[in-house]
Design a protein around this nucleic acid. Structure first.
Length: 280
DNA sequence: AGCCAGGGTCTGC
DNA sequence: GCAGACCATGGC
């Protein structure tokens, strides 16, 4: 686990600079279908909501700039959020014996698997079912505008499960989420009542955690896998959406190479990107 | 215009 | 366990 460049953190004018990051692309990471609320802003910046904070980030020459934050906040929240404790170049190297994966990682070696808030992730991927990314973003935006709190710059916090638990599916009509509205309410109620307990899921092994999430109506294997991967950092999860199913049939009819299995979730992101941009 | 979308449920074999 | 209809909506 060695890095060619040393990681260092520097605070200046209330901003934080983390240098020595050798694998990161903000567009590939923030707009690759794992998170739905990041927007490109001026000067190569990206703005998004993490918790109750509007975060502006940019990245150049191995240095990530987090605006208006502190070293404490970084260690507590953003380090895990951007998965900066993981050495992605060593993962890419570990699967480089497979020529298809070399191709798949070639154009998107800067993708990172974010660790997002479990509730937001769950809700987002319930909305994602049989849906396209453009519209998923719109529904989530209307959800936050309607039931979240304004937190500045036109951004809204993600409405907590407790708040949505008090509503009915009809209350979500303005979102135009279609048949997914009743699933969102069911999820909110079970999460608010801890009938589905995130703290417990966090400690569970992958299979138990998946079963636990599937207690929610509208959550099947694929949505559960997305939540485990993008919300709980369980990288053995391998969500199979229609793109991945097509790609796997064409590229790996006998399943992932053995070498890739320990990082299945991360490799899944490379394959997803490859299937959507290059084509299969 | 019609197929498709980071699927799941329900029914009927 | 597995196929097929059906689900709301809008992107392309």
């Amino acid at each position: 686990m060695e890095r060619s460049v040393k990681r260092s953190i520097r605070a200046e004018n209330g901003h934080l600079y983390i240098s020595g990051i050798n694998t990161l692309s903000l567009p590939d990471t923030l707009d690759c279908g794992q998170a739905f609320r990041w927007k490109p802003a001026d000067n190569g910046r990206w703005q998004g909501v993490v918790g109750k904070k509007v975060l502006s980030v940019s990245f150049a020459e191995g240095t990530l700039l987090l605006e208006n934050t502190s070293a404490e906040e970084y260690e507590k929240i953003f380090k895990d959020y951007f998965d900066l404790g993981r050495d992605y170049s060593s993962i890419i190297a570990a699967v480089a014996s497979d020529e298809i994966l070399v191709k798949a990682t070639k154009d998107c070696a800067g993708i990172r698997v974010l660790k997002q808030e479990p509730w937001e992730t769950l809700c987002s991927f319930i909305i994602s079912q049989n849906n396209n990314i453009k519209r998923i973003k719109g529904i989530i935006e209307r959800l936050c505008e309607t039931y979240g709190d304004p937190i500045g710059d036109g951004f809204y916090s993600f409405p907590p499960a407790e708040r949505l638990a008090a509503l009915s599916a009809e209350d979500l009509a303005p979102l135009r989420a279609g048949f997914r509205a009743k699933y969102i309410i069911d999820a909110a109620r079970k999460v608010a009542a801890k009938e589905v307990d995130f703290a417990a899921i966090d400690k569970m092994d992958y299979e138990s955690a998946q079963r636990e999430l599937m207690k929610i109506c509208g959550v099947g294997q694929k949505v559960a896998d997305c939540v485990l991967l993008f919300g709980f950092g369980k990288i053995e999860a391998f969500p199979k959406d229609v793109w991945i199913k097509r790609a796997m049939e064409a590229l790996f009819p006998n399943g992932l190479p053995e070498k890739a299995l320990p990082y299945a979730g991360i490799v899944q992101q490379y394959i997803f990107h490859y299937a959507r941009t290059v084509g299969i």
